[in-house]
Simulated scan of single mutants.
Amino acid sequence: MARIISLEDVLKDQIKEINQLEMVTSFIQNKEELKDSLIQAQNDIEDLSIGVLGLKKDLEKMKEHNVSQRKLMALYQQLDDRIIHMTNNFPESLTQQLDRQEEKLNPIIKEKTPNSYKKPLAIVTNSDLTKCEPIITGDSIVKDCRKMLFKDPEDSYIIKELSDSEFSKIPKYMIGRQTLSTVNAFITTINQIMKFKYGILALGKVGARKKGELNLYLEFKKEESDLKAANQEGEIYFFNADDYERETNSKLDKTKLNLLTVLRHCKRIHEIRLGKNVKYRVITS
């Protein structure tokens, strides 16, 4: 019996064939683009293959390095065991002999403390003698020049606190809401910074090395040389933002910079700019 094909089935078959023909036609029309895409894909696969081979080689090298490291660790362990064995079995007679030889070669020398350096005496001029403090002895008045003759270098870089009269003359726009006690507390902090800095410099290179502050000493000396090279005359005592941060573990913020402006106004410090570096020189009397 013959199979009856409906019109709908015929149309479906025709549509299917048309779709296949369209696909084949599209392939034929875009065969060059498809060819280029396939070539590009092939090149990418080859590049990936080369990369994988490179990774395999690197992995092999890492494995070899790992093996050599393990061998080296084993040798270190053997050496450590031998050293421990030699230490535990070192003859006591040889130990005593070595101690005696060391005492002969290195006599015991009393180590000087870091603060054992001699402070330099100040050079006193005739004008300085007028600054000696008067002492009343009976009916006569003599001048005490001990402080002038044996002047401590610390007296040169210590900033004097502001008095009430000095504080009252500071412009309101400059001081803002800061009080006299706040300004003087800031001066005390600066004095501590200066004392530490010039205490390190007073040790000298040898003393700074013994104290473990050689790098800091060399840094301070370089800063001094830079200032002298900038034609800063006379005895120079100064500090900068790094010194402040090192001593206080805090930076010079806007408030502290305003206080420095106040100290400049009151003739306590002088600002020196060397390029981007700012240093604050203490004005010595």
Rank of each mutant, 00 (worst) to 15 (best):
M1T: 05
I5C: 07
V10M: 09
I18P: 06
M23K: 15
M23R: 15
V24R: 14
T25C: 11
K31I: 15
E33T: 14
E33R: 13
A41P: 06
D44E: 14
K56C: 05
L59S: 15
Q69V: 11
Q69F: 14
K71A: 13
L79F: 08
D80F: 11
D80Y: 13
M86N: 11
E92H: 10
S93K: 15
L94M: 14
T95G: 10
L98D: 09
D99E: 15
N106A: 11
I108G: 07
K110E: 05
N115I: 08
Y117M: 05
P120D: 06
I123E: 12
T125Q: 12
T125I: 00
S127M: 12
S127N: 13
D128T: 03
E133V: 10
E133A: 08
P134C: 06
T137L: 15
V142E: 14
C145W: 12
R146I: 03
K151N: 03
I159P: 05
K160N: 07
E161H: 10
L162D: 04
D164L: 11
M174Q: 05
G176N: 02
G176V: 05
R177D: 14
Q178F: 14
L180Q: 08
S181I: 12
V183K: 01
V183C: 10
V183S: 03
N184E: 00
M194S: 09
K195S: 05
K195A: 09
G199I: 02
K205H: 06
K205R: 09
V206H: 12
K210A: 12
G212H: 00
E213F: 12
N215D: 09
L216E: 08
K222M: 08
G234N: 03
F238G: 00
F238E: 07
A241Q: 07
A241V: 07
D242L: 02
R246G: 00
N249H: 03
L252E: 00
L252D: 01
K256C: 05
L257I: 09
T261E: 00
H265F: 10
I269Y: 02
G275K: 05
N277D: 13
K279A: 06
T284D: 02
